[in-house]
């Protein structure tokens, strides 16, 4: 039993370790290994396309995480008071957003946005006051990736935070309002500290999802690149140690965030599903 578990852990982490090892390759080809050099990291960070993709990905992930956490937490708080058809409808939409395959979301969003933009752009050009300069053109890019990522991650935050709210000690809130604390004060002093670990892990999971997502971004990023898109197209052209270096950096970032998220989530509710 123990041996089997050990084998599975090696299976899970071996390939990750291999990528990190190969990123320190001193040789020119990804598949011939000779130890050890950090030069590929220098190459990777000196590559302007890679850096642009990395910055885009970080911006997208940060905006997605902030939006999803704010909107998801607001909705989760409000949903405690919503019952009946409206509640059912909202739950159905939340689960639909989670269940529909990312690739279908990506395609549907692409088609819908292109259609809407084609309709809106001419109107915008006419209606835009000339005093403000040229009319902006709505187009696919980082903004649309953020919007599409926020849909899925927001649904995720709703589910995570709602589970926490259900477990919350309600008597504290009642006590607070019995003692005439204004609702805002009750929220900041009682509710928020209790749901904070869930909100934080929702934020971190949203960030990592957005930072790692390839399929949705692939469709709605337009001419902009994100890091996974850059890595994917590089793999298509051939495997280089430079990609391994980038991959190692990405792994380090997501592993750090995830362990923080895990630690936060297990602080009180030990075995809650991610």
């Amino acid at each position: 039993m123990r041996v089997y578990a050990a084998v599975i852990y090696v299976f899970l982490y071996g390939p990750i370790a291999l990528i990190v090892l190969f990123s320190f390759n001193a040789g020119r080809h990804a598949s011939d290994f000779s130890c050890c050099s950090a030069s590929w990291y220098g190459r990777a960070f000196g590559n302007p396309f890679m850096m642009e993709a990395l910055v885009n990905s970080l911006i997208i992930a940060l905006c997605t995480a902030v939006l999803a956490t704010l909107m998801g937490t607001m909705a989760a708080l409000a949903l405690q008071r919503v019952r009946g058809v409206l509640r059912l409808l909202f739950d159905a939409l939340t689960y639909t957003a989670i269940i529909i395959p990312g690739i279908v979301i990506g395609i549907a969003t692409l088609v819908a946005l292109v259609t809407v933009f084609d309709a809106v752009n001419p109107l915008l050009a006419v209606a835009w006051p000339p005093s403000l300069g040229a009319a902006p053109r709505l187009r696919l890019g980082t903004g649309t990736v953020i919007a599409a990522h926020t849909l899925f991650t927001m649904a995720l935050v709703i589910v995570i935070v709602r589970t926490r709210i259900q477990d919350m000690d309600r008597s504290l809130i009642e006590a607070s309002s019995d003692l005439y604390a204004p609702p805002m004060r009750t929220f900041f002093q009682i509710t928020l500290p209790q749901i904070f670990p869930a909100v934080m892990s929702g934020f971190l999971l949203s960030f990592t999802f957005s930072f790692d997502d390839f399929v949705i971004a692939f469709f709605v990023a337009g001419a902009d690149t994100t890091l996974p898109i850059y890595v994917f197209s590089s793999i298509r052209r051939g495997v280089t140690p430079e990609i391994n270096a980038i991959a190692s950096v990405v792994l380090a970032v997501s592993l750090t965030l995830l362990f923080v998220a895990q630690a936060l989530q297990s602080r009180r509710r030990r075995y809650q599903s991610p």
């Binding site: 852990y9 899970l12 982490y13 390939p15 990750i16 291999l18 990528i19 190969f22 990804a30 598949s31 999971l205 990592t208 999802f209 790692d212 390839f214 996974p228 890595v231 994917f232 793999i235 495997v239 990609i243 991959a247 990405v250 792994l251 997501s254 592993l255 995830l258 362990f259 895990q262 297990s266 991610p274």
Partner: peptide
């Protein structure tokens, strides 16, 4: 945690490791 973490770690890169 060691089981859950890989799932949220760059799927693209973990898959790409198997090319090697």
């Amino acid at each position: 945690a060691l089981v859950v973490v890989p799932f949220w770690t760059s799927f693209l890169i973990r898959t790409y490791a198997w090319i090697f």
